[in-house]
Design a protein around this nucleic acid. Structure first.
Lengths: 342, 342
DNA sequence: GTGAAAGCGCTAACAT
DNA sequence: ATGTTAGCGCTTTCAC
């Protein structure tokens, strides 16, 4: 009788099959792969050869059970749909693959609850995790960090390795740029209260403004989305700022679109600068001046840091790694002009 | 002596610990969770209670080893960095989570080799895979489909379940729209040769054009990127088309930017329509008219189809699922005007 | 309804 | 250098 199932379920060869075919013990086969030094060179070669012919592949599950080595890393992002993460994921993936790890990307939809659930699900599977813009509390992060090696992105947490963008410097550059264009009073569109980066950006801006003798005004908080930026329109219009720095590019773009709809011209009437340089900052109109985050590098470096911490016996370096931001000047900023209205 | 390791490695309780604490056999604990019906209601309740108190969580690895149930699904995408996938990933993630599965996203950088490697790595771990815009050959896909339940996205493969966008209908709509704006000769910017969708779109366009008595001209192939669209600029300018349909939004946006640089106005001089309606189609300038793919639904439905095929004993439905596309009219298309040059 | 025991495929002592 | 044995934590017959 032919097999009942539609598809032939060819049995995957195990280490026992290879051992039998070679006339050696299973443990020898295992050694031939994991500890080639400790086995006769010829037997090892023969084993590999036979294994190859049989199409043997070690079952990663079976290997992971006794050793704990799953070769899996988790990257949790607050929202996969946010262009901010695209390059970060790519970078993380690159670094993981390079080290023979597979990356598990978990999307938590901006929810601390979902984040906790996803983590609970993924944690036993992975050897380490990088938290991208986590919405969890510091203490919750610390708790999970003692279950698995952890590195956090875009946030500083004493005792936990982290990699962040040097947004303070970026914010200063943005303010200097605006000052050089003769803007005297600039607005800041704040992001979510819980955002660590938001605090950094605002503080740096205020300090820079003070040094340059500018006035700054804070609006918000707004959701870190296009809609959030749109919401800011009436406030900006009603104020007397001639330039605004937004929490991120999405907010900046949302603002620009809303401004256009309200017949306020960018950069003629008001200059706009964003943060991050996501995909979209270049194609929007006018092209957005922005403080570019080293997205790919961020992802890559985060998993490299994680991997390093995992392999070393000593507690990992916990001083945050600061990656440089760069101000990219495009078309949304220009020399200050007379305001259209009082 | 305190523990040597910096972090307390609190041992995770196993089924044995719970069993001991309850005074029952390990198998009973197992049953209490997996087959609650077959165990005394009271004991079951007590076991769950104790397990809860001890913070017991079944080790997914250990569970997967004898059963093969890893609760992992793979989604392989040709390029995570492509906005086309954002919503697809989100949809797939949603459907997976809903069914208590975790999604493994693999990025293959537009390379068949990397794709094969990634698959080889992930396959033994997952219970099923959805292939998003695979770059592998049909036969390679068939081979892997007999190792694990598979569904393909944006491609039709007899014998393999697939879910695709009804781009033929979308392409027709686009042509009709252009015809209604009095365009008589329209161009098509082709995507990669290996793209199944490209063939569909081009064919449907040609047929629609014939019915409406329009002339169509094919340019390319181009890379499915902004750069690819930019490349097309001289060809389009040199031709006598008054409207162009691009393989996808990225190409369309690239084209529009190039056109702007060449001082050709969209839509005054030439109308442009894209495919997919990715993030960016709305924020670019002018906002892009495009054949919107049901991105989130695509991802969601693919996973649901996969899951359905996995659980049913009967061979899965292999007639491709056709999800509707919708023409979204924005600012990049307008009534035909006199060409600027002969 | 519950317990005992075998086994998933691999690794890691421990022997030889 | 190689074979033997005992698990890793869970599921699943098979008895009772």
């Amino acid at each position: 009788m032919p097999t009942v199932r539609g598809v032939d379920e060819r049995k995957v060869p195990t280490i026992y099959d290879v051992a039998a075919a070679c006339g050696v013990a299973p443990s020898t086969v295992s050694r031939a792969f994991s500890r080639p030094g400790r086995v006769n060179a010829e037997t090892a070669a023969r084993i590999r050869q036979v294994a190859e012919e049989m199409g043997y592949r070690a079952n990663p599950l079976a290997r992971a059970l006794p050793t704990g080595k799953t070769s899996l890393l988790a990257l949790v992002v607050s929202d996969v749909t946010n262009p901010f993460y695209f390059e970060i994921i790519r970078g993380a993936e690159l670094a993981a693959t390079e080290a023979d790890y597979t990356l598990l990307v978990a999307d938590v939809h901006e929810s601390a609850t979902v984040e906790r659930k996803a983590l609970e699900r993924a944690l036993p599977l992975v050897e380490g995790v990088v938290l991208g813009t986590s919405r969890m509390s510091d203490s919750a992060i610390r708790v999970m960090a003692q279950q698995r090696p952890t590195v956090v992105l875009n946030r500083v947490l004493t005792g936990i390795p982290s990699v962040i963008t040097d947004n303070a410097r970026g914010a200063r550059r943005a303010v200097e740029h605006l000052a050089s264009l003769e803007h005297r009073t600039i607005g800041y569109l704040a992001g979510p209260e819980a955002s660590w980066a938001d605090g950094m950006r605002w503080r740096a801006m205020r300090e820079a403004a003070e040094m340059l003798d500018l006035r700054v005004q804070r609006f918000g908080p707004f959701a870190p989305t296009l809609a959030g930026g749109a919401e800011a329109v009436p406030l900006v219009v009603a104020s007397n700022v001639t330039a605004v720095v937004a929490y991120n590019d999405l907010v900046a773009i949302g603002l620009m679109r809303g401004l256009a709809a309200a017949d306020v011209r960018v950069p003629r009437d008001v200059s706009v600068v964003g943060f991050d340089n996501i995909f979209g900052a270049e194609i929007c109109s006018p092209a957005l001046t922005t403080v570019a985050a080293p997205l790919t590098a961020l992802g890559k470096y985060a998993v490299q840091t994680l991997l390093a911490g995992m392999s070393s016996r000593t507690p990992p370096q916990t001083r945050p790694a600061l990656l440089p931001a760069e101000l990219i000047i495009r078309d949304s900023t220009a020399r200050r002009a007379r305001r259209r209205r009082s």
